[in-house]
Design a protein around this nucleic acid. Structure first.
Ligand SMILES: [Mn+2]
Ligand SMILES: [Mn+2]
Ligand SMILES: [Zn+2]
Ligand SMILES: [Zn+2]
Lengths: 145, 145
DNA sequence: TCTCGTACTGAAAAAGTTTTTCAATTAGGA
DNA sequence: TCCTAATTGAAAAACTTTTTCAGTACGAGA
């Protein structure tokens, strides 16, 4: 979790996009959060950095960030779709059921399992999406109070 | 895929719910579909069985069916949340990217992988959600035309 | 089979979310 | 610094989901 704002900013520009104040604010909001954020939460949190930040801009920026794989949708237990910063490539997320703290899992060993699925179903597997729910260390502690 | 309407109907009543015409229609719609259906699609398809079927009732019924694990939300590539009938217990789904045909995977071998995730993150893993995308047999054929 | 209480229904309205439109603004290369 | 295309926020539209409410129908019990 040592990714910096400057790296993100550069990634955005490398994708051919302008680095505007609202976009800076959105990146800051995502960077500051330990849990997936909804568009409305991103707006609210981002307004600390750009007071005028509009919700429309949040939607538009998320669309861009997702298209260049800088951000990924994560399913939170109840509602849908929180967004978190992604490290490039194929990853999964573990989300705490209590506090929604997120940890990214970079490696993924599902190959054998997926091969078996392919054999059994006749499908040619192209992709998969795994999300893991659990209870984070901090929340486990809390239980013992 | 040999589940019958009568079995579903009985499951619903076993859960303490009435077996009404609109609910019959919703079960028929789900039973007849090879792919996940949105609430609006369920309404439309269900109106063949109950002409007056309202969308509100579809939402309410899905909530019940989900609560007794008769139906499960599945994420379709673009939009969110289609619903499919579920076999009880823990399953996953393979969804065709082209035609959305769904196959349910009953076993799941993720135990070792999840143990490693637990060890690495300190999270106590409570649940997981895996969806697999692919290309079904029929759509693979089609490619060769 | 009939009666009755309650679970359930659809219409309408409200609430919430996401997308589109548009005139004004701003980033950043020249 | 200037210029232009990309980007912005407000407003409105389009969609989706939930709430309210008066009427309906299921199904247990007589
Ligand atoms: Mn994976
Ligand atoms: Mn979803
Ligand atoms: Zn936690
Ligand atoms: Zn297919």
């Amino acid at each position: 979790m040592t990714i910096t704002f400057d790296v993100l900013a550069e990634q955005l520009r490398a994708g051919g996009h302008k680095l505007t104040q609202p976009r800076r604010a959105i990146l800051q909001a995502l960077l500051a959060s330990a849990k997936p954020l909804s568009p409305a939460e991103i707006q609210q949190s981002g307004q600390a950095f750009c007071a005028e930040l509009g919700l429309v801009t949040v939607y538009r920026t998320l669309e861009i960030l997702e298209s260049i794989d800088m951000v990924r949708p994560v399913h939170v237990a109840d509602g849908c779709h929180g967004y978190v910063l992604a490290t490039p490539g194929h990853t999964h997320h573990v989300v705490c059921e209590r506090c929604h703290a997120v940890v990214e899992i970079v490696g993924c060993d599902l190959g054998d399992f997926l091969d078996r699925v392919a054999a059994r179903t006749g499908y040619q597997i192209t992709d998969h999406w795994l999300e893991i729910a659990g209870i984070c260390g901090a929340c486990q502690q809390e239980k013992m109070d």
